[in-house]
């Protein structure tokens, strides 16, 4: 895992690097880790995703927002190999990911979490964590039957898992079944488990969904910590307060397309964004956070 520099410095570095980037959809970034071009996915007659060009800045926290059905999760699935686009290409660290299966994408350093948490219920918390580590000798069929080939590595994995569990306040639950955890604890476990592989980029699909408000702050801090440790974060979120609080850059999707990009304050004033959220959705009740950014609207 990358080294941890002084807290806060990575945030400033990210903000500075992005300062010169124009607020237009598909804007080039100074040091992109992920570049997607003409990614298109249709379900029957419906075009779920049609992204012309988008770049994700390395070492920054980027939020992917948009109204329901904007194609955010589908875009996530495409980028991580869980779904196959009808056309398009996307590069991670300069390597073409088209046709690469999901597990290989994860091994290359881009791991994801899911909107509906996928804690492995009937496995203990510590087993969930151990499973997250990649490159295990004992996961090979023939070696697995010879415990002496993997015992040492297993001990090393376990100590790394314990350290992460401690950081995520889950050490007390170590021997519990993951299915017995609360919704928020499952989110924490899923994130901690993803970190076991030492990823370069972490993709979080609605990390706050279903989380008890008491745990929200701790989760937010954990996401900020990821950046401080040198990881790139891309996350999908509905909660505007959270987006404003932690993200360095915001990408807005609507009807499968990227319609706006920019730092959180600028994006929330963008008329195209407000239209996307409100236009055609006037009948829908606005969330408290949704109202909060319309108040900042100078118009």
């Amino acid at each position: 895992m990358p080294d941890s520099p002084v807290a806060g410095s990575r945030k400033e570095a990210a903000v500075q690097a992005l300062a010169a980037v124009p607020n237009v959809p598909g804007a080039p970034k100074p040091d992109p880790i992920l570049v997607a071009d003409h990614v298109m996915r249709r379900f029957g007659g419906l075009t779920a995703v049609d992204v012309d060009h988008v770049e994700i800045q390395r070492g920054a926290i980027t939020a992917l927002i948009g109204p329901n059905g904007a194609g955010k999760t589908t875009f996530f699935n495409l980028l991580t190999g869980f779904d196959t686009p009808d056309s398009g290409s996307w590069l991670f660290n300069g390597k073409d990911l088209a046709g690469i299966p999901a597990y290989r994408v994860a091994r290359m350093g881009m791991v994801r979490t899911f909107q509906l948490t996928k804690a492995l219920s009937r496995m203990k918390v510590i087993e969930n964590m151990r499973l997250g580590s990649t490159g295990q000798t004992g996961e090979r069929l023939w070696a697995s039957m010879l415990p002496f080939t993997w015992r040492k590595q297993e001990r090393e994995i376990t100590s790394r898992a314990d350290a992460l569990l401690e950081r995520f306040n889950l050490l007390a639950k170590r021997e519990d079944f993951a299915g017995s955890l609360s919704g928020g604890q499952r989110k924490l476990l899923e994130m901690a488990r993803a970190l076991m592989s030492g990823p370069e980029m972490v993709m979080l699909d609605e990390p706050m969904a279903g989380v008890n408000p008491a745990l929200t702050q701790s989760l937010l801090q954990h996401i900020k910590d990821l950046r401080e440790q040198g990881m790139t974060v891309l996350f999908v979120e509905h909660d505007m307060d959270m987006v404003r609080d932690i993200s360095d850059w915001v990408i807005v999707m609507a009807q499968g397309r990227v319609i706006a990009e920019g730092p959180p304050e600028d994006v929330m004033k963008d008329s195209a964004v407000i239209d996307a959220y409100l236009g055609g959705h006037h009948d829908k009740a606005l969330t408290a956070s949704g109202v909060s950014f319309t108040e900042e609207d100078p118009a």
């Binding site: 869980f82 009937r122 151990r130 090979r140 039957m145």
Partner: peptide
């Protein structure tokens, strides 16, 4: 073994295991 752990993970949720 860790191999068996992967199997149990697949039983619980194969997408999660794939993501790892």
């Amino acid at each position: 073994s860790p191999w068996g752990r992967v199997l149990k993970g697949i039983r619980e949720d194969e997408d999660a295991v794939r993501s790892l």
